[in-house]
Design a protein around this nucleic acid. Structure first.
Lengths: 341, 341
DNA sequence: CTGAAAGCGCTAACAT
DNA sequence: ATGTTAGCGCTTTCAG
């Protein structure tokens, strides 16, 4: 169907090497010859085959990208960032969404390895095995937006959620809150995430006593988030503010507060980590920690594409998460009015 | 770096053809031999190269996907749908976002053609040329989520926005509205889109006089949307409802209404086409026309992957857009209260 | 049931 | 400046 280099060479009356030289830019060709080649190519609608070239060069180019869900705003930003990076480098991007399912992730990584991509940037979900295999196969791997404790040798770029939560916690306590709920804690027994750790640490540093029963666990699903928020706000033991550890949890908190006819921020302050479009649209607009998804994606791509003989940075690359103050947090009910700075 | 079929054959003490047969499934191999091959492959971390196979088979597989912006909720849904489809067919997806820029689109399509993908599904932005070239090269092309009048021979799958806008317009007029603004009309002189046409037609069918100055134009950007909404609502000549033709326009309307201290729906009713996450979160929740982005993506993928010798359906595939009634629309101020049905 | 060999489209020596 | 050729990793006749 598609014309090959031979067709072009034949039509132009030159050898295939000349055609190759015209397209690859290596080696010189006379102006007249080049013109004949180009004309022939145009006549035949010739596009050089990346497949043939890849086989010969033993390097395909291309970035694999594995995220849990393209529909999630943070993931979408991250994808956009990787796309940006790929575009500036003239690379293509192979995308898959694996829904945090380790089996699907393994399958996706396997397919990408078979495609002989330059490397993979991923928000890792489950098993270490596929990543080890990918790295062993010579493909680069960079994690983005999510840490993966098991593979310390894999470079990773993250939002500095610890700092983000610290800012937010300090902001809330500064407003006068002493009974802050943390929505989205680890299940009892499980290791707490960075967000929860930062929350605990900040409270401790501020000498605000931590109330363990205000750390409410939730799995990362809408339903679980909603249940957790409902459980918290219905029987709220003097909670004056809730810090939602993710945008799904923030959404749940807003919805539950509205259902319970709680005024925000008069009755409860609400804030969340993850700044998404609706944060600005809801009423009142939600204070949130903005995580630089696009930058993370871009940076991860750069890390992948750059010369891999160079030593990678020790430890994760942390990109700043910024506190965006909007109208959803105020002083706790009954507190002295804080004078504006 | 990576092991090849030869390495495996050598280690297993068989010919490369046998290794190939083990992996491709074509031809029979003795159980014992197969085991030896598999063992050797495992020892070498062998993964067959898709590049070699593609070259030999002269068919790469893979779906190209071109959207304006992965960060847009509708596009993200569409991408997710194509990903779903690709997964069930064992295909991979090559994604690019081109920001509605014809030059970037042409570049993206060019790269995809060079990759010798099976075909491309796209939300087309600009020029017809790259698409014609792609189709000529033998790759299938399917448009999704956006019509492209210039290329009638390209199959296209769309949300039935006409029907959606009709439902919405009927709903609004049913509530008693007679002065409905349409936010997002075509620029004066330009051809109106399906949404606008449906709006005009529905009003005409209902014998509601159309007020031309309530059709306000906007380009598809946040700024333009905001300006249009502000212009409309500041000097509103008796507008009782606004129908926003897209989610960006809906967002702008909500924001402007809030800034102007207009109560929704008491002072103005607001509704939009495009149901996005925040519609449910904002206060009051926004009535919207839900467009089945994911289904559109899936369907477009199917259309692309299925035997292309079969005749494609004449005319676009229309997927239903559903009116989701929430709290942002009510009877116009001063109207007789409509009895509940 | 298995091996040898041709060739997919391309690039990079090497030769002219 | 241009042509010839080998070979990238794989599948697939064709022999055996």
């Amino acid at each position: 169907m598609a014309a090959t280099i031979k067709d072009v060479a034949a039509l132009a009356g030159v050898g295939i090497a000349t055609v190759s030289r015209v397209y690859s830019g290596n080696g010189a060709v006379g102006a007249a010859t080049r013109e004949r080649v180009l004309a022939a190519a145009r006549a035949l609608d010739y596009r050089p085959s990346a497949v043939g070239r890849s086989l010969k060069l033993r390097r395909t180019g291309g970035i694999g990208l594995v995220v849990p869900d393209v529909t999630d705003p943070f993931c979408a930003e991250l994808v956009a960032g990787v796309l940006d990076c790929a575009r500036t480098h003239g690379e293509h991007v192979l995308l898959d969404a694996v829904g945090d399912d380790p089996a699907r992730e393994a399958a996706a990584v396997g397919r990408m390895v078979e495609q002989r991509l330059d490397g993979i940037v991923a928000m890792p979900a489950g098993d270490a095995a596929p990543w080890e295999a990918a790295a062993a196969s010579g493909a680069g791997v960079v994690f983005a937006g999510r840490a993966w404790p098991g593979l310390p040798q894999v470079p990773v770029v993250l939002a500095d959620d610890g700092a983000g939560v610290r800012s937010l916690t300090e902001y809330l306590t500064g407003l006068g809150h002493r009974h802050i709920a943390f929505l989205g804690a680890a299940a009892p027994g499980a290791a707490p995430g960075v967000r929860e750790q930062a929350f605990r640490a900040t409270l401790a540093a501020l000498n605000v006593p931590l109330e363990e029963d205000l750390l409410v666990a939730a799995r990362p699903s809408r339903d679980s988030a909603y249940a957790a928020a409902a459980g918290l706000l219905q029987s709220r033991a003097g909670v004056t503010a809730v810090l939602a550890a993710g945008h799904l949890l923030g959404e749940a908190a807003v919805l539950v507060a509205r259902e319970l006819d709680l005024r925000v921020p008069a009755d409860v302050s609400i804030a969340m980590v993850g700044d998404v479009a609706w944060a600005e649209l809801c009423d009142p607009p939600l204070t949130a920690v903005a995580r630089p998804g696009r930058d993370i994606g871009r940076r991860a791509g750069e890390l992948l594409l750059r010369d891999r003989t160079r030593r990678d940075p020790a430890g994760p690359v942390m990109l700043p998460a910024e506190l965006v103050v909007r109208g959803s947090c105020g002083p706790p009910r009954g507190a002295r009015i804080i004078r504006k700075l």
